[in-house]
Structure formats: structure tokens, C-alpha cells
């Protein structure tokens, strides 16, 4: 699946089955939210982000409207991905919105800004994937922070 930003020449590529797998994992935690780290890599010209994998948190707290994750116990996974060819690295995070739309909340917007500003985070444009779902409907929203604004990727 190729997604693009409307006015900025940046692209995001991700396999549909990978998204389906994340949705399956997330829904298993119903009625609570759930999520994890997104792993991927940029093209040489830094115009295309390919998301390939997830790392799931070892420690987290969740309610139907909140998901808090810790990075304890997963650092080695990031190192292992970085040893692959091409090198893969942390590009953002994903989480579910049970019984809700795939639209970022105020908490989500604060989180993505805090990620970008963290001194140990190398990237300037973290991506946020939200999987909103109800009993009979699932939708996804991919967002990216550019400077101080959040943009949504479109099909």
C-alpha cells in the first residue's frame, strides 16, 4: 500500500497484511487500547518511508481510552533491526482506538511531539498509526509530524 501526503512530496509504503496483523494483535486486547513501536527505513533520497515491522512493548498499561507503554526490555530488538540490511530503525508508534475513529487525540498529538523532541530519538518526523475499530468496521490513519504540524497520509 502506498500512501502520500497531499502537499508534500513524501510517501509511506507498508504491506496491507502487516496492517491487518497489527489490527488483529490490537483487537485481541479489546476493550482496551493496545499498540507498539513501528520499525522501517527511509529511501536514499529520504522521500519514501517503508514500514516493515513492529516491536511490541514488554511493559504497558491500558484502558479503553488510554495506552501507556514503556521501553523496558525491548532495546536489544532495536539494535538487532539496525544490524539488518537495509538498516531498520524506529520510525514511530501505533495504537488502537477501540470503538472510536482513527483520529489522533490531544494525548496522541502531545506524544508525537514529545517523541520528536526526545534527545535519544534520531528522526525528525515520527509517524503515528492509529487503528480505529468497532464490531464491524476497521479504519486506519497514518500521520506524520513535520515541523510542528501533523499531516495525514492519503491513499
Amino acid at each position: 500500500m502506498k500512501l502520500r501526503l497531499k502537499d508534500i512530496a513524501l510517501e509511506l509504503q507498508v504491506e496491507e497484511r502487516f496492517i491487518n496483523e497489527l489490527a488483529r494483535i490490537g483487537k485481541a486486547h479489546y476493550p482496551n487500547e493496545y499498540g507498539g513501536f513501528l520499525i522501517g527505513y527511509y529511501s536514499d533520497d529520504k522521500k519514501i518511508l517503508t514500514i516493515t515491522d513492529t516491536i511490541l512493548p514488554k511493559k504497558y498499561n491500558a484502558t479503553p481510552s488510554l495506552f501507556m507503554r514503556d521501553n523496558i526490555g525491548v532495546k536489544q530488538h532495536f539494535k538487532n533491526f539496525y544490524k539488518e540490511k537495509p538498516k531498520k530503525y524506529y520510525v514511530g508508534e501505533w495504537h488502537t482506538h477501540p470503538n472510536n475513529k482513527a483520529i489522533p487525540s490531544i494525548t496522541d498529538i502531545k506524544a508525537i511531539n514529545s517523541i520528536r523532541n526526545d534527545k535519544d530519538v534520531a528522526i525528525l518526523n515520527p509517524v503515528l498509526l492509529i487503528i480505529g475499530y468497532t464490531d464491524n468496521h476497521t479504519e486506519i490513519g497514518f500521520y506524520v509530524l513535520i515541523k510542528d504540524k501533523i499531516y495525514k497520509y492519503e491513499n
Binding site: 487500547e33 527505513y41 530503525y89 487525540s105 494525548t107 535519544d120 528522526i123 525528525l124
Partner: peptide, 23 residues
């Protein structure tokens, strides 16, 4: 310009922030 994904100049390897809260 905004038309490339950026990094902070220290390579691309990151450890995500310790705690993060989503809603």
C-alpha cells in the same frame, strides 16, 4: 524544505522515549 524525511544528524538509530502515553 519539508520534502524529505529528516534526522538530527547523528545517524538514524534511536531508542524510543522510555514512557509514552497515547489516548
Amino acid at each position: 524544505n519539508d520534502d524529505t524525511y529528516g534526522d538530527k544528524g547523528a545517524g538514524l538509530f534511536s531508542i524510543p522515549p522510555k514512557n509514552e502515553r497515547f489516548g
